Amino acid sequence: MSALDSLLIQCPYCGETLEISVDPSVAEQEYVEDCQVCCQPILLKVVFDDNLIPHVDARAENE
């Protein structure tokens, strides 16, 4: 079982910086997580490259 990595993202609604956890054992992930500040749904797409460096796209759910 692998450990989760913590990343900082910016909420596309309120602009707050949020900490999320991602699983490096899954190369591509897409899921919705609510903002911890404004409670709006954020669509997160996480892709790990060959060096296990995460690339995150955080968008408003309705974009």
Rank of each mutant, 00 (worst) to 15 (best):
I20M: 12
C14Q: 05
V26G: 02
S21M: 14
S25F: 11
L44M: 02
K45H: 10
L8G: 00
E16Q: 06
C14F: 05
V56L: 09
S21W: 07
V56P: 01
E33T: 13
V47T: 12
D5R: 12
L52M: 14
I42L: 05
L52N: 15
D34P: 00
A58P: 02
V56G: 08
D49G: 08
C35D: 05
H55D: 14
C38M: 02
S25T: 15
E28F: 03
F48K: 06
L8F: 04
V32D: 14
P54F: 05
D34F: 03
C38F: 02
C38A: 04
L8S: 07
V47H: 12
E30V: 04
L44E: 01
Q36W: 05
Q40W: 01
L43C: 11
L18W: 06
P24T: 15
C14K: 02
R59K: 13
L7Q: 14
N51A: 15
S6P: 03
L52A: 11
Y31L: 13
L43P: 00
C11Q: 07
I20D: 08
V37D: 01
P12T: 06
L18C: 05
E33Q: 15
C11H: 01
Q40T: 01
D23C: 15
I42P: 02
A3F: 13
T17Y: 03
E19F: 07
D49W: 08
I42D: 02
P54Q: 10
N51K: 13
L8Y: 04
E16M: 06
I53K: 11
N51R: 10
I42Q: 04
I42N: 00
D49R: 07
V47S: 03
N51C: 07
F48T: 01
E16V: 00
V32R: 03
A27K: 10
P24V: 15
N51I: 02
C38D: 04
I20W: 12
M1H: 13
P54N: 12
L52Q: 14
P41H: 07
I9G: 04
G15I: 02
P24C: 15
G15A: 04
D34E: 12
V32C: 09
C39K: 09
V22L: 15
C39T: 10
P54T: 09
E28Q: 13
Q40D: 06
R59H: 09
G15N: 03
E30N: 13
A3H: 10
Y13H: 05
C35V: 02
V56Y: 08
I20L: 12
P12I: 10
D57T: 12
G15R: 00
I53P: 00
A58I: 02
D23A: 15
D34M: 07
L7I: 07
P54G: 12
C35N: 02
L18M: 09
L52F: 12
N51P: 03
